[in-house]
């Protein structure tokens, strides 16, 4: 029997073939996906930010949001969403959207920071909306109070984003995302624009000082340690119970079977 013929009869052969085929398909898909990702337009330095944004918008956004951002059946109008909303959605990779669904997910951004700012500047011309917060406003978090931030976070944010910023489920497949990867600027923008299901926390009712404290608290959460060991996603008793009932009890069953097994 040849080596190949021998391998074909191996009981792992089908598993191997399956994974090989899956690998091929995924490599192929990635290739195609790269082809259809909008090529970033080359624009000369002399173009203003808005002109540059206009060109990028026409190429990457207008198929869903309409040529003038008026909205189509595939995407909402962008009039009045403001620059902060655009910067949040594009810099967190949520826009352009990969596929329609209950929730738009965070992914690697398709545009660099300069292009994102250009898009934001262009969309801001559609109608007045929240502007991108200044560097000063965002960086206020560095000197903000963690304790105050914790109190505000637990009152205003923890209900959806979880006590440790791990996110949580909403209705009908929607969810509040984890805050692990969100930058201070993105957290600020999310609070003033209310992306997707999230409500708005306007600067008048949750002051920039309070926002800074919340951001500081989230930064502390993200770098905090797990002195108790495996954190299991910091989701609380549900994952811990699931872990014990499946892994813990599973291990006990394996041991029980081993104790009772007949020795040869």
């Amino acid at each position: 029997m040849g080596k190949l013929a021998k391998f074909r009869r191996n009981r792992f052969a089908s598993v191997f073939v399956l994974f090989f085929a899956l690998g091929l398909v995924s490599i192929g898909f990635t290739g195609v996906n790269n082809l259809v990702t909008p090529a970033v337009a080359k624009i000369g330095n002399e173009a203003t930010l808005v002109d540059k944004g206009s060109a990028l918008f026409a190429e990457g956004c207008s198929s869903c949001h309409g040529l003038n951002g008026q909205g189509t059946s595939d995407g909402p109008t962008l009039a009045g969403v403001g620059a902060a909303s655009v910067h949040f959605q594009v810099s967190s990779g949520r826009m352009p959207m990969a596929a329609p669904g209950a929730q738009v997910e965070r992914k690697k951004p398709s545009y660099n920071e300069e292009e994102t700012l250009a898009l934001a500047a262009y969309v801001a011309t559609f109608g007045p909306g929240p502007a991108i917060p200044s560097e000063e406003e965002v960086n206020m978090w560095i000197n903000a109070s963690v304790a105050e931030g914790g109190e505000l976070y637990r009152t205003n944010c923890a209900q959806c984003h979880n006590f440790a910023g791990s996110g949580g489920a909403l209705t009908n497949g929607k969810y509040a995302p984890s805050l692990k990867e969100a930058t201070p600027l993105q957290i600020y923008e999310a609070m003033i624009t209310g992306p997707q299901s999230m409500p708005i926390f306007s600067d008048k009712t949750l002051t920039p000082e309070s926002k800074a404290a919340i951001i500081r608290y989230i930064q502390e959460l993200n770098k905090s340690e797990n002195p108790g060991g495996l954190a299991l996603g910091r989701l609380g008793p549900v994952t811990e119970g699931l872990f014990l009932w499946t892994v813990g009890l599973g291990a006990l069953i394996v041991v029980a079977v081993w104790i009772g097994a007949r020795v040869r």
């Binding site: 105050e148 209310g194 409500p199 306007s202 008048k204 309070s210």
Partner: peptide, 16 residues
């Protein structure tokens, strides 16, 4: 937490 009085014009649509 911050105990500030609230004006209706400070609350945009979608605010919580």
């Amino acid at each position: 937490i911050t105990y500030a009085k609230i004006r209706p014009e400070d609350i945009p649509v979608g605010n919580l």
